[in-house]
Design a protein around this nucleic acid. Sequence first.
DNA 1: AGCACGCCGACT
DNA 2: GTCGGCGTGCTC
Length: 837
Amino acid sequence: MTRFAKVIVDVPSKQTNRPFDYMIPAEMDPWIEVGSRVGVPFGPRTVQGFVVGFTSESEVNLTRMKSIKELLDLVPPLSPDLVELGAWMSRKYVCHDIAALQSMIPTALKGKVERVLHVSETYGDEELLWLPEEQRVLDTVDRQGPMKLEQVTTMFPEHEKIIKRLLKQGFLIETQSIKDRVAKKKVKVVFITIQEDQADEVLTSFPAKARRQKEALEFLMQTWQPMLMTELLAELHTTSSTIKGLEDKGYVEIREMEVFRDPYADRRFKKSVAMELTEEQQHVYDALEGALNTREHNVFLLHGVTGSGKTEVYLQSIQHCISQGREAIVLVPEISLTPQMVERFKSRFGSMVAVLHSRLSNGERYDEWRKIRERKVKVAIGARSAIFAPFEDIGLVIIDEEHETSYKQEESPKYHARDVAVKRAAQQGAVVVLGSATPALESYLAAVTNQPLAGSEDGAALKLLSMPTRVGGRSLPKVHVVDLREELKNGNRSMFSRDLYQAIEDRLAKKEQMVLLLNRRGYSTFVMCRTCGYVAQCPECDIALTYHQKSDHLRCHYCGHAEKAPKTCPSCQSEHIRYFGTGTQRVEEELAKLFPGIRVIRMDVDTTTEKGSHEKLLGQFRDRQADVLLGTQMVAKGLDFPYVTLVGVITADSALNIPDFRAAERTFQLLTQVAGRAGRHHLPGEVYIQTYTPEHYSIGHASEHRYKPFAEEELEHRRKRGYPPYCKLILITFSHEQLPMLVRMSENFATRLKEEAQTRGWIHMLHQAADDAIELLGPVASPIPRIKNRYRFQCMLKYRGNVDAVELVRAVSAEFDEHVRSDQLTISVDVDPQMLM
DNA sequence: AGCACGCCGACT
DNA sequence: GTCGGCGTGCTC
């Protein structure tokens, strides 16, 4: 029986957000599966699509139904369970199906249409009068054979209309196909084709002229093994024409072979073996092994203090999972931030690991991904999107530092990897481990109340495991909270308190190392004129510009706009223009002034954009080429250096004063994480936290390493004020170039939301005791009211119980589709937002 | 999203 | 009378 393919096409619009039916050419049929990537004719063009199902009968008139044009991969890039996961994601996070599917595959496979032109066969048959420019275009294409449309238009930039006309009249013919962005890497390998017993015969009869060829052949005869062309040429200092000559004589064969680009090719990893577990670790491991043995879906929250040895537990659980014949996925916040982590996995599992590094080139990432799809590895480790690793028999998913905000994708689809992971594990009967020293309150509450995570309702109830002590009985570092108000009273206006100053001096004398954290890059936070009060702002965003000293520029940290720093006030020409606030560059300068000869490595977005710069800087610090590692929050995570005995937080307040209900949680997490960097080995550690609000509970609890009391206090706040995890949120952001239009649209939207909530019979008040409730806040201007010349307004929906607010938003958004299309309005929906910007 | 079809204003 | 503006609708 013939079957038709249901295809989701790569056309991101509301009207095309459904499967289209296609016929399957007979020769393709055995290869087409759910998850296959295909090129299909769609209207006048060819687009990429994914097969999401099959049907034996279609509503579509068979005379109008088209056929799949090309199959783009022999092995489908998506498995049926990933296709299903995509459907779940598009529903949960309000995005097009195609966007969800595309987010699961490497960018290398986001095919582009290639349009190729050739001249009709009838050209030249008839005596037609051509315009001179038509003649030129036709002759060029005719002479060159099939040409990419792009090439033709760049050759004749002003003849676009003529090309279009020739196409319409059929003198030029266009063929479209889908091309991947990155080709598989191929290498030439030289195979020796003669037998060993023929060697003498061949060599004696070798033409005397072909000395180089003979040398090459003799070289290959030393091993009789195939050899990489590049290596062979380097060894013999010759060119490929020599080897070609040998090929012509039939002594060797040159074959092109696919290889994987290996970003770790030049690195050697010492083989490591399982370490003996402490009693605490063993307890946790036993629970995980037990769960793996049932082969059922389970979710654990592993609360382990920094330095409690979570990684070793991960490694051994993965080992067990692999020995069961199943696969494992490990998510880490931002893998390039933790080269140490990669190293541990590589040295334990060697070539069984694929690393999906966020700073790999597209080609490298594609190759790592192919290793997974082609079952060459058993473990995938990577950032957020590694949760889509195309394994088919997953036993274990580990999410390290599960509270990290980088698990939430800020672009559409705005998914949370933690929730996707639980969903995928539920599909596959896999065990999930959420590991953290400072669990997200959502996870913690679910674990202590034995409920599934709020973001992934299909998941199993969370079970709490904990590891409250550090490996080797090392104590947590002593934390000093320094009240900066007191310092100011005592006339100290420097960025270092006397205590921190002395501590730095002390470590320098002892030749120990320190980590200093400041949550702000650049030199200063804003630039102001003392005469007229002018503040330098980004011309396209309503946000203050930051001064960067090295380049002497003002920079917008939102859109990247940069301008030369003014010497006089642009508004009143006064020379009293001053820089306020402190950034990492300024701290670096101050350190150099106060401690002559101090060696500082500064690590922030500005110094780590270059590929590999991260590893380089950390390597230098590890080798003790510097005394101080100074940086933004990226220095707080996962680093482990034996000689670090001092951690200083320049101002804890910058994280606390962000207008976000999670500010206290973030501050607690940041302080606890950074404090954990000190004294991890034989030397005891010490931490100084400078703040203007030492009485704040997040700082107090962090300084005493008390997670549970903090969590309880913070949960109480959330419950009282009606914030997650006691309700759910949807943030809807509207943006438009014209403010009045934006205000009108967002108000209309809000009104429609309220009306629809009412017709569905939902109580529009969260503060009432009702189990099912919904509340709308806004519209109000967004915290950043304008970005890139577009004004921004937002609405927040809070809801709980059996209220399907996502469906509500989806329905109302659909009504505004025309406005989105024609009025340059954009509506962005963020389900379970992590940042309220 | 593209692209075609279709109905109203300023020009050869 | 035509060229071209972008409003509406379709894509298996």
